[in-house]
Amino acid sequence: MLGNNKYKISVITAAYNAESCIQNLIESLRAQKDKDFEWVVVDGASTDRTLEILKSITDLNIKIISEPDFGIYDALNKGIKACSGEYYLVAGADDVFYENAIQDYKSGIGHSVDIITGIVHKNGHLVHVRKGGAWLFDQCAYITCHSLGALIKRNLHFEYGFYSRKFPIAADQLFIMQCCENGAKTIQLDSVVGEFGTSGVSSEDVIGTCTEKFRVQLLLGKNKWIQFILFVLKILKRLLLLK
């Protein structure tokens, strides 16, 4: 076990020099209908006003860790170990929760599930779980989005380990797929829980993201020739879009 649970839900944010966007996330947490949650922010030793903004918060159950890290998943691992929730949600500093998010996620916990996924707004459209196998849609065959869109039982990390530092972009894909392909129970909510920010590494480094997703699929034993063909097609598509 990873510790005693004080809250049902912890929100974990990995932040670095996020003063330009984190206020929107803060206001969305303040606006939650259900305020019984904690917010753990793991700051990578920001040099802007991020820490000043966070330390001024007095109306949220906030825990702040500020020290250098090895990237987002190293920061998330620190947050998971430090949080007290039975379940946790990842939220990027540029993400925004809708006011129903915590309340709706809690309603799903009653079904004794391991992972609960909610519908997320991203790039102007709604993201749902993809219908098809994980060999084609990777973790999107199980969850809508790792950030905002997946309430994860914390003790899954005791069974499957923490986010791998070998995959600085797609460690979430590896962890979610390992859990789900080994029997973790998932459900999807009918509600829209928030709006995904698009300034993260996975949104900016599309070639790197495709490459890591390909490596994860091979590591998990998916048909290597099908994965190679899919990888080449994705890279060609990205290159054409860049023209």
Score class of each variant (00 low, 15 high):
152 I>N: 07
183 G>W: 09
239 L>P: 01
24 N>F: 15
36 D>N: 15
114 D>I: 06
184 A>S: 13
191 S>G: 11
49 R>K: 10
15 A>I: 11
231 F>V: 07
46 S>R: 03
216 V>N: 01
210 C>H: 01
226 I>Q: 05
76 L>P: 00
122 K>D: 06
61 N>Q: 08
31 A>Q: 05
98 Y>G: 00
185 K>Q: 14
66 S>T: 12
237 K>H: 14
188 Q>Y: 00
14 A>G: 05
61 N>A: 08
236 L>I: 15
112 S>D: 14
131 K>N: 13
116 I>K: 09
79 G>A: 07
199 S>N: 07
79 G>P: 03
42 V>K: 06
151 L>N: 04
179 C>F: 04
29 L>W: 11
71 G>I: 07
123 N>R: 12
88 Y>C: 13
177 M>H: 10
94 D>L: 10
229 I>H: 13
121 H>T: 10
146 H>P: 07
71 G>C: 12
199 S>I: 09
242 L>I: 14
186 T>C: 15
205 D>F: 01
139 Q>C: 09
12 I>Q: 03
29 L>D: 07
83 C>W: 03
66 S>I: 13
23 Q>G: 07
232 V>D: 00
18 A>G: 06
62 I>V: 11
100 N>V: 05
2 L>D: 07
94 D>H: 12
87 Y>S: 09
93 A>H: 14
5 N>G: 11
101 A>W: 00
144 T>A: 06
172 D>C: 05
152 I>F: 11
55 K>T: 11
31 A>G: 13
103 Q>M: 08
199 S>Q: 05
205 D>I: 01
42 V>F: 10
20 S>V: 07
140 C>K: 03
23 Q>E: 12
148 L>H: 02
59 D>H: 11
64 I>S: 14
170 A>I: 06
123 N>P: 05
123 N>V: 09
50 T>Q: 09
195 E>D: 11
195 E>S: 13
18 A>W: 01
200 G>M: 06
67 E>N: 08
56 S>P: 07
6 K>D: 14
114 D>P: 06
211 T>Q: 02
50 T>R: 10
178 Q>P: 11
79 G>R: 06
163 Y>L: 13
12 I>H: 04
101 A>Q: 00
10 S>R: 13
28 S>D: 09
57 I>K: 03
217 Q>W: 05
161 G>E: 02
158 F>D: 15
225 W>D: 13
173 Q>L: 00
24 N>S: 14
228 F>M: 10
230 L>G: 03
176 I>E: 08
